[in-house]
Amino acid sequence: MSATISNRRKRSKLYYRVQHYAGEIACLVLGAVLVIWSLMPIYNMWMIALNKHDAIFEGGLWPEDPTLEAFRVVVTQDFWYLAQFWHQFGNSFYVGFMVSFLTLFIGSLASFTVGRLHLKNGWMLTNAALMTYVIPASFLAIPMYRIMQIYGLANNLWSVIATLTTFATPYAIFIFSQYGKSIPMELDESARIDGANPWQIYFRIYLPLMAPALVAVGTYALLLAWNEYLYNFLLLSTPGSMTVAVALAQFLNSDESPWNYMMATAIIYAIPPIVMYYGSRRYMAAGLTMGGVKG
């Protein structure tokens, strides 16, 4: 009898092992499909960036004569659209950082006070936030232009920061409110018994536990700011106050643009958000481990 049991065990072990490997292979295939799907258009961008200007649309699968010339041009600001590239890069950083910071700060405070402190009638705050989405952002361009003139923020980077924070925050409040539900209220209670005030609970307990959502939303806000160009043009006027998104949009000014420079600019421009995201990935991991410690 004991022999049949061990036999069955052996069989099931083998069965599970086969199942396991089949599953792993399926996952590998899925991974490969994902990589190809994600990279195709980006590979195309690289192709264009590595080509010479007059050979961009020859249609090979790899440039006949690949060159990093386009990247050199961007980095050394050797083309008139890109004459202020690094300065604009700095502006982009400033705007992107401020928008992310303000979005996370304002959004997490609001969701904390509504979701945890249960501020009387706080739900109105979240409902109000959603009203921002009744008309898509691109159609509020004209009212936003007007309002910045009234506030005296015309041609000031802060007009762009304020606008983009306005569009990003409702979304942040929303995701934080959803995500915050997974954090047990008892953590707050025990801190409260230890005499912590709401600010301390917000800062020491709520924020660290929200890390994964903060990273995701922060990157969202950064990219929102990073890619926005309509409002940059609309609200800013002088070349010194422009951002890289504006430099990119310049290439659309003409039907005859050096697309290789444009793609090289886009590739360089995409690096900081990626680096930032991967730099902050450990917070996502931290969120995970803390989630495990909770019980």
Binding site: L223, W226, N227, I274, Y277
Partner: peptide, 11 residues
């Protein structure tokens, strides 16, 4: 993650 980080217009 790359598609998300790539600027929309050139992509």
């Amino acid at each position: 993650i790359l598609p998300w980080a790539t600027p929309a217009l050139p992509a």
